Structure formats: structure tokens, C-alpha cells
Computed example of a mutant assay.
Amino acid sequence: MKIPLSNALLDEKDIYEVLKVLKSKRLALGPYMKKFEEMVKNYVDTKYAVAVSSGTAALHLILKSLDFGENDILLTSSFTFISSANVALYEKGNVHFVDIEPDTLNVSLNALEEEIIKTKKKNSRLFFMGVDIFGHPLDWDKILDICQKYSVEIIEDSCEALGSEYKGKKCGTFGQAGAFAFYPNKQITTGEGGIIVTNNEKIYQITKAMRNQGRTSSKWLSHEVIGYNYRIDEMSSALGYSQMKKIDKIIEMRNKAAKNYEKLLTFLEIPVIKSYVTKMSWFVYVVKLPKGTDINKVIDYMAKNEIETRNYFAPIHLQPVYKKLGWKEGMLPITEEISKRTLAIPFYSEITFEEQEKVAFYLKKALELFS
């Protein structure tokens, strides 16, 4: 029996809602998009939500709505999915990567402030893309203090953190706007899709127009601003609407799975949850292998035993496109050292304890062989 890295939780209710859309033949810009937006904004407690085609589209539109452009600088983590940085390049801006904390794997507060101070001398506008990595919130009170001190705009990349809470407040609500993503390995899925949440009416209005080819009125061929085809379709919206009905159940199931791993994986470093996290919504489960472990041999060994694992994440600043911009090894030492030994293991809502036992058994044997 193969154990996959991730697996979406889908049931008959999800199928029923999607079939309703297909039978209606209203496949885009229909009622389900609005119902999905309402559910998400009410869940995270914001005034507005704009559903789009992906988490990347959500981040891009937020940056665009803030007039981010050439000569502006986006500060973010290199230990995240590449779209957190790429969206700045879409607008011909600059990316400055910040090193991470070795325990939470979120951006280091000290490194962030140091980079801001150093970068302020360039007289560029500064933006911070705060990533709640793997669902673990940043220390937002301290982040807000730093960014307010230096007049840095905040965008929250909560694409992996739907449902997580920092001191009782939902992730996605700490910056000018936040973004969530719904790829099949996320807490809930729409297949492909994302959403913007914000309390800023201007951001809401402009991102809503830009997702739909720049339309700001009901006239279909009237385009007042430059826009994109970043719409989410009705089938995806219907699935998201249905999935949101069980978000609390999904988070509970994933928390149970995480606690099982905590009991089973006593032989290696498991994820750290800080005291300021009042609710953890797990995206993936990433462990740290001992220093010196051959991670590729571990991955191959697990695969031979029908267990899918993956190195998570490779640093963005060492990707070829960013090396061409001048980034190189040694610039972010903690990110580079940690990324060599982070391993995502099978984790999803319906994973069984027996499957987790198998993962733990073979992972222990792999470490005995390759550490």
C-alpha cells in the first residue's frame, strides 16, 4: 500500500455541489463564487474577499493594488514557495531575502530589522511579504512593530495557514491584505484557486476588477484598468464552498495526525509550535533530519517502501533565476543549512495511525542507514 505525501479530503457533499454547477451550465462568474467569498471572509473576519484562480494570483493582485513597481523592494523569506518572491519580479520590482529562525522556519525578526535598516538607505519603498510557513503564524505583534517603525507595507502570505490563529486572531488579517491558496495539498481545496482577504475597500475594489480583465462596471467590454484573467471558475468555487463547511473538522483531523507524529517521531526534530499560536492549522508536516544525513538517500529509501516524501523547501535564492540576479550560496546561512535537512512526510486529513506508524518505522530505519 503506497502512502502519498498528501491527499485531499473529498466526500459526496463536495461532488454534489460541483455537479449542481455542471447541471446548471453556469460555469463562471456565478453564485457559488460569491457564496465561497462570503464563507471565507466570515471565517477569517474581514470585510472583503476576492476569489481568484490561484494563491499566486492573489499575491500578485495585492502587490499590484498597492502600486508596487520598479525600484520598489519586497522583503521576504527564501524558505517558502517561489511565488512569494516571483510576484515582485512580475512588476519589475526587487526582492531582498531575509534569513529564518531555525525553530519555526519563519523569518527571523532580527534579520528582518537588519535588512530593513540596510535597505532603507536606498530610498526605495519597502514591502514585507510575511509568510506563515507551513501554517505556523509569524510573531505578528513584533512584525507589526518593526514594520510600523520603518514604514514598511505588509502583505500576508497565508497561503498555507487557513485557520491558524495568532493570539486569537486569524492569519491573513495582519497586513494590508492576506492571501490563501487551495491547491489539493492545502487544508481545503478547490483544485486550483486562491483568495484575497482585506478590510481595505480600495484593495477590494481594484483586485476585484483586475481579476476580471480590469472591468469596474457591469459593461462586459468596458475595461477601466489593466487587468488579468485571474477569475476562479464556478466548479472550483462550489468545491470551496462545500469544503469550507467542514474546515473545523479538517483542522481537528490534521491536529490529531500531528499529535500522533509527535508521539511516534521521538527520534528526530519535529515541528515547533510557539506559545503565541492559539490555533494551529497544519498544512504539511516537516521534520528536520540530523546534520550529515543524506536526504536524497532517505527519500529514495522511503519511496522503495512505498512512502512518498519530499525535501521542503529548496531555498528560492539559490534557484537559477535568482542566482542570475546575484544571489549565491552563503548569503542566508540558516536557510541554506536548514533546507538541506527538512523533509515533508505523508500528512493529510484522513491519514490513519497505521499509515503513520509505517512512516515512522521506515524513517527510523532510513536514519540508521544514512545518518
Rank of each mutant, 00 (worst) to 15 (best):
N42A: 01
A258E: 01
E192A: 09
D72E: 05
V52E: 10
E153G: 02
A344F: 06
D248E: 15
E113W: 04
T173W: 11
I338T: 10
L264R: 06
S339N: 01
P137V: 03
V87L: 00
G193T: 09
L221R: 13
R26Q: 15
Q213C: 08
K41D: 00
V40M: 03
F370A: 02
G330V: 00
S24D: 12
I62D: 04
R341C: 04
N255V: 06
K64S: 05
N212G: 06
F128E: 06
K149F: 09
I307H: 07
M33A: 15
K47T: 14
T335I: 03
T216C: 09
A303N: 12
V272I: 13
I146N: 10
K340C: 05
E160V: 09
L105D: 14
N296C: 05
P315R: 02
I196S: 02
I117R: 05
M39F: 15
H60P: 10
E113H: 10
E350Q: 14
N229W: 10
S371D: 15
T278I: 01
A88T: 07
H317P: 11
G69F: 06
I247M: 02
N255L: 00
Q243D: 06
T342G: 09
E368H: 14
E350Y: 15
A161V: 01
R231S: 12
V131P: 13
E201D: 13
I316H: 06
E201M: 11
F68A: 05
L138H: 12
V87Q: 00
F134N: 14
P137R: 00
E269M: 01
L162C: 03
K142A: 08
I206Q: 10
F36H: 14
A209R: 03
G330C: 00
L63I: 01
N94Q: 13
Y241E: 05
H96T: 07
E160L: 00
Q356V: 07
L367G: 12
K274P: 15
K35S: 10
V152A: 03
S83I: 03
L289S: 05
D99S: 08
H317I: 06
V98N: 03
E192P: 15
K25V: 03
L5H: 13
E153Y: 14
G172S: 04
F180A: 01
L109F: 12
K34P: 14
